[in-house]
Simulated scan of single mutants.
Amino acid sequence: MKKTFFILSTLALLAACNQEARQAPKPAPASVQATLVPQTPPTDKWVGKWVGVEGLHLTIAKDDSIGRGHYLLTMQYGLDADDSGTFKGEAAEDGIAFNRPDGPQLLRAGDGAATGLKWLADKKDCLVVVTGEGYCRD
């Protein structure tokens, strides 16, 4: 009985040693990840100054220190002095995703009607955060 147990244990040990070690997949190198963002993201066309209503405004600048598809959004997004700041944004499928004190936001292209603001209704080139908050170019 001991002999049988010893032989089975030895066979099990040899079988385990014969298995190749499996490694976790490595993430793609930075050079490959960089190719996932287009050379010129469509959101690069949004760089510059945008105007809202009642003194609201948005300025988009590239954040080249991080890489393609990254932006700095300087905005006055509400009527209170505290409703302003500079936020880091990143190109997303539908626009520029960013976070500010009122939560995660998505800046997307639209027209004046999409802003929901009658003062911007006739504009054609606008960016909208939510209905009631939009910025347009003339």
Score class of each variant (00 low, 15 high):
90 E>N: 08
104 P>A: 13
98 F>T: 05
75 M>P: 02
112 G>D: 07
75 M>N: 04
110 G>T: 09
109 A>F: 07
45 K>R: 14
13 L>H: 02
102 D>F: 12
60 I>Q: 00
57 H>Q: 05
44 D>F: 00
128 V>R: 05
100 R>I: 05
34 A>N: 09
118 K>H: 14
76 Q>L: 12
51 V>Q: 13
108 R>S: 14
104 P>H: 11
117 L>V: 11
113 A>Q: 14
46 W>G: 03
62 K>T: 06
28 A>Q: 09
70 H>P: 02
66 I>E: 00
32 V>N: 04
15 A>T: 15
46 W>Q: 00
106 L>F: 04
9 S>K: 12
112 G>L: 08
42 P>M: 03
28 A>C: 03
36 L>Y: 00
4 T>Y: 07
137 R>N: 15
29 P>E: 07
112 G>E: 13
125 D>C: 12
33 Q>D: 10
2 K>F: 10
45 K>L: 13
81 A>K: 05
35 T>N: 01
82 D>E: 12
76 Q>W: 08
11 L>Y: 07
14 L>S: 13
76 Q>G: 12
56 L>C: 07
87 F>T: 05
112 G>V: 09
136 C>A: 07
11 L>N: 07
78 G>C: 01
30 A>I: 08
84 S>L: 02
75 M>H: 05
103 G>P: 11
60 I>V: 09
99 N>P: 04
122 D>R: 11
106 L>K: 09
128 V>T: 03
15 A>F: 15
51 V>D: 10
45 K>I: 04
90 E>T: 12
66 I>G: 00
78 G>D: 04
109 A>H: 10
57 H>E: 03
41 P>L: 05
72 L>N: 04
16 A>R: 08
27 P>C: 03
26 K>D: 08
73 L>V: 06
97 A>S: 11
24 A>W: 10
43 T>Y: 00
76 Q>M: 08
33 Q>R: 13
74 T>R: 09
41 P>T: 06
104 P>T: 12
96 I>N: 01
104 P>R: 07
120 L>D: 03
138 D>P: 15
12 A>M: 13
127 L>A: 04
89 G>S: 02
133 E>S: 09
80 D>M: 09
121 A>H: 03
2 K>G: 15
57 H>I: 00
35 T>Q: 13
2 K>V: 07
120 L>C: 05
83 D>I: 00
137 R>A: 11
20 E>N: 15
98 F>G: 09
124 K>C: 03
112 G>H: 09
110 G>N: 06
90 E>A: 15
123 K>C: 02
38 P>W: 00
65 S>L: 01
131 T>P: 04
75 M>V: 04
17 C>A: 14
18 N>A: 15
31 S>P: 02
128 V>S: 04
82 D>H: 07
78 G>M: 02
119 W>S: 15
103 G>V: 14
96 I>E: 02
120 L>I: 08
111 D>S: 14
134 G>D: 05
125 D>L: 12
123 K>I: 01
10 T>H: 13
86 T>S: 15
126 C>S: 06
84 S>F: 01
111 D>Y: 08
13 L>C: 09
56 L>W: 12
113 A>C: 06
63 D>I: 02
78 G>E: 02
1 M>V: 15
44 D>R: 00
132 G>M: 02
75 M>K: 11
27 P>M: 02
44 D>N: 03
5 F>E: 13
120 L>E: 07
34 A>K: 11
87 F>A: 05
11 L>S: 11
43 T>S: 08
82 D>V: 10
100 R>P: 02
76 Q>S: 13
